[in-house]
Design a protein around this nucleic acid. Structure first.
Lengths: 160, 160
DNA sequence: GCAATATATGTAGTTAACTACATATATTTG
DNA sequence: CAAATATATGTAGTTAACTACATATATTGC
């Protein structure tokens, strides 16, 4: 059981570790879509999946839903528009808003992806089905952080 | 218990979730160092901490240790050299190698950081001390992935 | 002991998120 | 109802990692 210095530093490097794992999973995700012959980038997933489930949304509500800053969403939408997977129109009631939806091509693509998602879900269940479940741990940590931020918690120990 | 579409997609979005959490923790980390009046960026942590523990290392072995691609390490080292926190010299045995070590300033900085780490360790223990322990979950998942990659696992379900 | 291969370092350019700022429209308030 | 404030979208520039490629030195194998 060799261990590197960063692992040994335990909790200190948690952010680094999370990022590394995220990266690894994303890259494998790309390979899986390729293996299925589907022209799809994992980074598109949050936007497309949300539109698939909610049909029409404004830019900001979409950003909130997927947890991205709105400029990130805008640049994804530009890319998806170029791919003709989504389109948008003005909201007639609130003209500030731009309403985004899947095109027929987009809907069709997502339909072909459903079986791939099933495979991904199974493979991910596979890897997270350990003593401490990663998805559950993330959910729990995010809930804990919502209650009281990391900084606020640190401040308590700081004063002691 | 409101839930957004991405959360509801469960395992599919795991990479996105990991990244978001990593970012949040990193930002709070930066605030904590600031609160302690320490001029330090969380991204420096892996390199500096490893040098603190191992004294002298080559660029590639350092990269392996912290799990980064070597160009990432090189650019961190450049930055740290500008800050006069590290220095480097040629290996006399293998002249390809550049040996990196902390300067006195670097060592001094890290010494002042030890109490901050304690606070960070406590605060992180706080947030990860949930039913499913995040650090343990990460360790377990990484070990599982080392055995057999995500793609290889997906391929098994693909064939079924 | 030289040719082929492997390893170490470095540079250039990419990526996918971010923050800060700008502008247009809606909503609220005195 | 006009001024002040809030919200929605968009642009520009930054960041922190990456991959691909280039070069120099070391090691291996015939």
């Amino acid at each position: 059981m060799e261990q590197n210095v960063i692992d040994a530093s335990g909790l200190l490097a948690i952010s680094t570790r999370l990022q590394r794992l995220s990266d690894q999973i994303r890259k494998d995700g790309l390979l899986i879509y390729k293996a299925f012959g589907i022209d799809f980038q994992p980074k598109w997933f949050p936007v497309l999946y949300t539109l698939y489930k909610k049909s029409t949304m404004s830019v900001v509500s979409l950003s909130d839903e997927i947890g991205y800053a709105h400029p990130s969403t805008i640049s994804l939408l530009k890319e998806l528009e170029k791919e003709k997977l989504i389109r948008s129109k003005k909201d007639k009631v609130d003209t500030r808003k731009r309403l985004v939806e899947l095109t027929e091509k987009g809907t069709a693509l997502l339909a072909t992806m459903e079986p791939v998602w099933e495979v991904i879900i199974k493979a991910t269940a596979d890897i997270t089905n350990t003593q401490n479940n990663l998805m559950k741990a993330i959910n729990e940590v995010e809930a804990t952080l919502k209650e009281k931020s990391f900084l606020q918690r640190a401040e308590v120990y700081f004063r002691k």
